[in-house]
Design a protein around this nucleic acid. Structure first.
Lengths: 295, 295
DNA sequence: TCATGATATAGAGCACCTCTATGTCAGAGT
DNA sequence: ACTCTGACATAGAGGTGCTCTATATCATGA
C-alpha cells in the first residue's frame, strides 16, 4: 500500500519545486523528503520529478498526479476545517424533542440564550409525547429529549435537571377560594381544568388524586396549556399547572394559587439521552446550557 | 500533524461500520484499527464513532468528516489509476486493424509520427476487411479499426476522421484520355483495373456505376493496390484509386487523372471503437494523433 | 447463564521514517 | 580555472510510533 504521507510530501515538493524548501515547510529534513519522494516513485513505478541543478521539476506523470493529489488534500483540509468549526459550534445542528408545553414554558429562554450565543447552529424542535420522543431518540432522529420525570428506558440516560412544583390556580371569579388552606377533597367542588389524557402532567395529577383515594371529575380538558391558563383566568375553574409557568400571571394577580393542605409533590424535568452514543458538540453544549443557570 | 493513514482506516471503518471488518479489509489487526481511530479522534479533538455493542456508528462529526474524506480518497485513487494508465505508454501496446490499402497509403505517416512520439509502444497491425475488423474489435482483439465509411454497428462507435476523393488514373499509354472531360460511359472503352470483390472500394465503384445504370466490365482485378497502381503506370488501363494515395505519381507524371463529367462522390474514412470500453492510454493517444493534423 | 461477537487495553517488538554527516553535481562569479 | 554556493543523493544510526499477540471488558441474544 502506498504511504499517504508520501503524497503530502509530494504535494509540497511539487508546489515549491525544491526539496529543501519543502522540507522546511514540513518541518523535516531534506533527506527525509528525498527519501519519501523516492519511495513514492518506486511504489507508483514512475518518475515524478526531474532533478535539475536548481531544484526539481514535475515530469508529465508527476503533473498528472498532482492534478489529483492537490484537490484531494484540499478536501481533507476542508474536512479538518469543518470539524474545527463544528467543535467551535460555528456550524452544526441541534435536534431537540420536548413534550407538550415544555418547549414554550420551560425551554424557550434556554433556546433564546443558546441561539444568541451560537447563532449558526441550526436548531430543530420536535414536539411529541414522552414515549414518542424515546423512540426518536433511540432511532437517532433527535439528539436529546426534554421529558417529565420519572421516566426510564434501558437504552436511555435520563437525568433530572430542574424541579418543578405544580399547583391549582383560579381566576378572579374564584379568588376567595385562594384565601384559605383547602383540604384536597374540597377541590372536587370546583370545576377542574386539566390537560388531556396522555400527557405526563395529566397522569401526575391523576396519581395524586388516586393516592388520596379521591375521585377525579374533569370538567374541561385541553391539549394546550396556553388555553387552559386563559380559561382559568376567565373564571372557568381551577387549572392544574406548573407554578413557574404561570409566575407572571400570579404576580399580576390575574391568577391565584389555591393553598392546599396535602402538598403536591415536586416533580422534575429531565434530559433524556441515548446511553451508548456520545453527544454532538452542539448537543453537549446545550445540555451544559440547561444544567447551568441562565444569566 | 494528523496521520494520513488514520484517514484511510477511518474511511474503511466508516464504510463497514465495524472495526474488525475494516481491519480485515486493510490486512491489519483489529487493535491497530482501534488505535488508529483513537489517534485520529484525539488529533481532531472529536469523537468520530459511537461504539455500540454490535459495531460502530458515525457520530454527527464523523459523518461530517466522511463527506470530505471519501471524495478525497476517491481522487487519490483516480490519480493512481491515471498514473498506471500513463505508465502503459512506456510499455503498452496499440493494436490497430485496417482494411486493404489504408495501412500503407493512409495510416503510415501517422504510425511513423506516433512511433517517434511513443517509441516504447508496441504497435501491432492487423489486416482485414471491414466486417472482419468489426468482429475483432468486438472480441477485443484490436483496440481500434480504420474503416471506409459508411459503416455502422450497434456495439461500435464509428467516427469519420478524414474525407477522401477517388478517381480514375491511367499511365503514359492512355495519357490522351486525360486531356478532355470524359462522360462516364466512355470509361467502358478503357480496360478497367479494380480491387478485388469484397473490398469497400470495389463496392463503392460498383455502386457508382450502378447509380448511372452503366454496366461494369472489369478487366483486371487485384487484391493489392500497389500492384494495381503499377499496372496502371505500365499502361494496362484505368485504375480506380483514391487520389491522395497516388499524389506522388500524379505529380511526377507517371500517372494521369481522367477528368469525368459525373463527379465521383467523396467518401470518408473513420475510426471504429468499441462503444462500451474505455480506450487504453496508447489507443487514446493514437486517436488524438489521427484527429489532429500531422506536423 | 453462557456463548458470541464486538471494542479496549497492555506490553513487546520492530519496521520505517527521520536524523546527521557526507558525497556529488551543476552553475555562477571572480 | 577555481571555488563557492545551493541543490539532491546516499549511508548508517537511532528512535518513534505503529502493529502485533494476548487478554480484558462489555452488550446481546439464545
Amino acid at each position: 500500500m502506498i504511504s499517504l504521507e508520501g503524497y503530502r510530501i509530494f504535494l509540497h515538493t511539487a508546489k515549491s519545486g525544491n526539496l529543501t524548501k519543502a522540507a522546511q515547510e514540513l518541518h523535516i529534513t531534506q533527506p527525509s523528503v528525498s527519501y519519501a519522494i523516492k519511495q513514492l516513485e518506486e511504489s507508483l513505478g514512475v518518475k515524478l520529478f526531474n532533478r535539475l541543478s536548481k531544484g526539481v521539476e514535475l515530469t508529465a506523470e508527476g503533473r498528472a498526479l498532482l492534478e489529483y493529489v492537490e484537490p484531494s488534500f484540499s478536501l481533507l483540509e476542508a474536512g479538518e476545517t469543518k470539524i474545527r468549526s463544528l467543535k467551535q459550534l460555528e456550524t452544526g445542528e441541534l435536534r431537540i424533542g420536548a413534550g407538550g408545553s415544555l418547549i414554550r414554558y420551560l425551554l424557550l429562554p434556554y433556546l433564546k440564550h443558546f441561539r444568541t450565543r451560537y447563532p449558526n447552529i441550526r436548531i430543530r424542535l420536535t414536539h411529541g409525547k414522552t414515549p414518542d420522543l424515546a423512540k426518536r431518540l433511540i432511532e437517532g432522529q433527535i439528539d436529546l429529549g426534554i421529558v417529565h420525570m420519572p421516566f426510564a428506558d434501558r437504552l436511555l440516560d435520563v437525568r433530572s435537571f430542574m424541579t418543578i412544583q405544580d399547583c391549582f390556580v383560579v381566576g378572579e371569579a374564584y379568588r376567595e377560594w385562594s384565601e384559605r388552606t383547602l383540604e384536597a377533597e374540597e377541590l372536587g367542588r370546583l370545576p377542574l381544568l386539566l390537560l388531556s389524557k396522555g400527557s405526563s402532567t395529566r397522569q401526575f395529577v391523576e396519581q395524586w388524586f388516586a393516592a388520596q383515594s379521591l375521585p377525579l371529575e374533569v370538567d374541561i380538558e385541553l391539549g394546550s396549556l396556553e388555553l387552559l391558563i386563559e380559561l382559568a383566568q376567565l373564571g372557568f375553574g381551577a387549572a392544574f399547572v406548573t407554578r413557574s409557568f404561570v409566575s407572571k400571571e400570579l404576580e399580576s394577580r390575574s391568577l391565584y394559587e389555591l393553598p392546599i393542605r396535602e402538598p403536591i409533590p415536586e416533580r422534575s424535568v429531565g434530559i433524556a439521552l441515548r446511553r451508548d452514543i456520545s453527544l454532538s458538540e452542539a448537543a453537549a453544549r446545550f445540555v451544559e446550557t440547561l444544567t447551568s443557570p441562565l444569566p
